[in-house]
Structure formats: C-alpha cells, structure tokens
Design a protein around this nucleic acid. Structure first.
Lengths: 243, 243
DNA sequence: CAAGAAAATTGATGATCGTCAAATCGCCCG
DNA sequence: CGGGCGATTTGACGATCATCAATTTTCTTG
C-alpha cells in the first residue's frame, strides 16, 4: 500500500514521482521537506480557472495530475490558447520573475489536482539552492524556443498545415498506437480552442477538418481522432524538397 | 577628451555607459574588470552575419552600437525576422542555457560594433555573482512575454493591422517627432524583412503600403516613412470598443 | 428525461492573401 | 558612367479565409 502512494502525485512532495522530472529535481531532502510543508494542493473541476490574466501573482502552481490550458486574451477580447500544461509542469513562474500580475490565464481542462507554492517559499528555496534558479532559467528558455518556433510556423504555413502540425504534437501526448499502426487520440480541447491555437476561426477549422476527412488523412468523431495512415499526416507537412 | 571616451561603447567595459542599462549593471568593479579583459570587440559591415542558426555557440554577444536582426529559417527555407536588437542588448544567451547550438541567426543591419564574451567568462561571472543570473532570467522572461504577445497578435489581427503595430514599435525606436506633431522615421529594414515580421509575402506588404498611402495614414519613400497624423495610425489599431 | 444553452457544422458571399509573371526602380561595383 | 543584379512594384488570378446567418448536434442542468 505504501508502494501505491508513491505513485500518487499531489499527496506528498517527498513521494511525488513527478519531481524527478521537473524543476524540483535539484532540491535536497531538506528542501523538499520545506516545499512539502508550504505546498497547498487543490482539486479543480473541468473548466475551472486556476488563475487569471491581470490578477496579482502570489506564487506558482505545479500540476499533480490533469491538463491545463494557458490562454491570453487580446485587446479585442479574443481568447488565444498558447500552450497546454501537463502533470509535472510548473505554471505562473513569470509572476515571480517580472511584474506582479499574471500575464496569462490557466484553466483546468479536465478534473485536475494542482499544488500551489507561495512566493516567499519559492524565494527561500531559490536562495538556498542556486541550482533551482538555473532550472527555471532553462525552463523559460525552453518555453521561449517553443514560442519562437510557433511564430515561425505562423509566419509561413497555411491554417491546414498548422493544424496538422498541432495534431501531430497532440498525438504525441494524447494518442495511442494500435497494432496495425493506426493512431487514435482523444482531443483534450474544443474546436474553438483548437482553432485559436492556429489563429483561425472555428468555422474555418470545421472546414479544414472536413477536408482532411475527404482526403482520407484522418477521421473525426466528436473529440476522437482516428489516423489510419500516419504517413499521410507526415506527408502533409513535408517541405517541398530542398535543392 | 576623457569625457568624450566615456560615451563610446565598445572601447572599454568600465567606461561603457550601456552597462548601466543592461544585464551587466549588477557587476562589481572587479567583475567588470574581468569582463573587460575577456571581451573581444569587433566591427561589422552592413549585412554581415554575427552568428548563424545551427552553429555551436561559444559565448554571448553584446551590441555596443548599431542594430542587429534576429532571424530564424523554417523547414522550407523561408527566413523570418523575429526581433531587432539594439545597443546594450545581449545576444545568443540561449546557447549558454540550453543546447550548444544557436537557435537563430544574427545579422548587423548597418555598420555595428559588437563585443563577444566567451562562455567560460560568462560562467565564471555567473558563479561569482548570483544577481547576474537573475538578470538573465528576467531578460529571458521578458523576451518570452514579447513572443507571446506576438503570437496573440498573429492569431487575431489582419496583416494590415499587424503592420501598423509594427510601424508604431519601430517609430518608438527610429522615429523623430517634428514640431507640428508629425513623425518621420528611417526604416532599418528592407520590405522583405518587414513582410516576414508580420508573416506576409513582400508583394502583399507592398499593396498594404499602397493602401495606407491611399488612406492618407502614412507616406512611404524608399526607407523613409512620414506620418502626418499620428492619430490616424492609432485609430487603425483601436479595438472595436469593449462593452 | 426534458429544456435550454453552448458548441459545431454548413452555406453563401466578399475580402484578403498567395502565387506567378512582368516591369520598374535603386544600388553596388567594375 | 554603365551594366547588372537584387529589391520593389504592379497586374491578374485563384485559393484561402473571415463573416454573417441558419441549422444541427452535443452538452449541461434542473
């Protein structure tokens, strides 16, 4: 039974297996102890907001289980989904580094368990363990790489191609491969959110999906996606042969 | 004459006024001494490459004077201009934090003076002075904010609106305001580069510029831009009144 | 289970944009 | 100064996309 608990993130930092795969991996036992005492864990229902753009940031969040959507809203009020966060991911670290207010919103996409660590604790840990700071730098730099890659994609690709790229990324995380090589995935997002990720209207995405089905690239049923021939998906994004 | 030299960046770190406005501002005199000995300064001609995407990164660059373009090239070979860097800006810090290879290219847009600081020196400074690391974290986080803001823009705005936004940003840095309130600016970029910044073809940008002139929003002559009524530019990007 | 609300699809239409091609402009270098 | 090359502009056309509106489907909630 003790063995069972070691695989349950969100109950106890010491036994949280996730911490070996995220920024906290560099902490000593003593520091994990401190983290565990300060941490406050909470369950979120599907669709519930974890934090919202513009509000003051009093700490950071660490996802124990579930999936979270990171959104921004532009001046005209259009919501844009920037990023998906999964178990082990740390959210809201920018409030600690820059201004006081959150620069994006986070929402639980399904039932989730998320831990909160207040600012003083994080700062104490950063002061105690310089390696933790380095971990966060790497994390931000990596996020910046992702953002730049998306900017390049947006600048050059069609909506259809961007959507295929998105499908491949989501497939990595949410897909299962059957024995015959076909793939199945349960989308964690609404069409609206999918559309906002590629900078298109939901009507446009609907038509893109229709065309992908016509072309036999994938089949969509609600939030379930079937890709019978993965090669056809890859063929979509193949660049036109460099010289 | 000594007073004159204090305003000449690139000659000597101690007397470089720029360091009060960038990451190096937290260094002690002793550390600036170390930085100054290790630093290698070089002049670049217009169009010359400072570093290129994919090559190994052996250190970071600090712009003493001039303007640099940060580019990426997508899988199909299309160059995309991500960012402009100015005197005081530090380039290529990601090679120090993440992988070994440069994830973007940097090119001098005009005659420029750029200092190079090798990796061992930067690491020694980071080890000596923890505040320097924090400075870099802030810098990366700020760059990430910019990138996310651009992603949101790309997702929701038309090419015309994106271009007007770009003009306003460039005006801040390169523009001068006349006594009658009109603005003049010398663009540091070709039309092709401007187009790649908003994710459009250069032919499309050409037409957008034509339409802006028709509408009396701005006048373009080569790389010179005249904005007689700044309010008309701002009116372009005004969101449709929130309720 | 039923009613209502939200999400998703579909159609029609006009605007925007990319592509190809040709012509013109501007700049650099011999 | 003239040639040449790249940058820019312009035109024509088709493809893609946004918008508005109507409908259907799905989800939520009492």
């Amino acid at each position: 039974m003790v063995e069972r608990r070691r695989t349950m993130p969100g109950v106890n930092c010491f036994e949280c297996q996730l911490r070996y795969r995220n920024e906290w991996s560099v902490l000593t036992d003593e520091e994990v102890e401190l983290l565990g005492r300060a941490r406050k864990c909470r369950n979120y229902r599907a669709g519930e907001s974890i934090f919202s753009m513009g509000e003051p940031s009093h700490g950071i969040y660490c996802i124990a289980s579930g999936t979270a959507a990171i959104r921004k809203i532009d001046a005209a009020g259009n919501p844009v989904l920037l990023h998906l966060a999964y178990a082990g991911d740390t959210l809201g670290y920018r409030g600690l580094l820059l201004g006081e207010s959150r620069c994006s919103s986070a929402e639980a996409l399904g039932p989730s368990k998320v831990c909160f660590i207040d600012k003083p604790t994080v700062q104490a840990l950063l002061a105690k363990n310089p390696a933790l700071g380095l971990q966060f730098v790497r994390r931000v730099a990596s996020d910046l790489n992702d953002a730049h890659a998306k900017l390049v994609q947006n600048a050059t690709l069609s909506n259809r191609t961007k959507f295929v790229h998105l499908l491949l990324v989501l497939m990595n995380r949410h897909g299962r491969t059957a024995t015959d090589g076909s793939h199945v995935m349960e989308l964690p997002l609404s069409r609206r959110d999918l559309a906002s990720m590629i900078g298109a209207r939901h009507e446009t995405l609907s038509r893109i999906i229709g065309r992908l089905e016509e072309d036999g690239v994938a089949r969509f049923s609600g939030r379930t996606v079937f890709v019978t021939r993965p090669s056809s998906l890859l063929h979509e994004i193949k660049p036109p042969l460099l010289d």
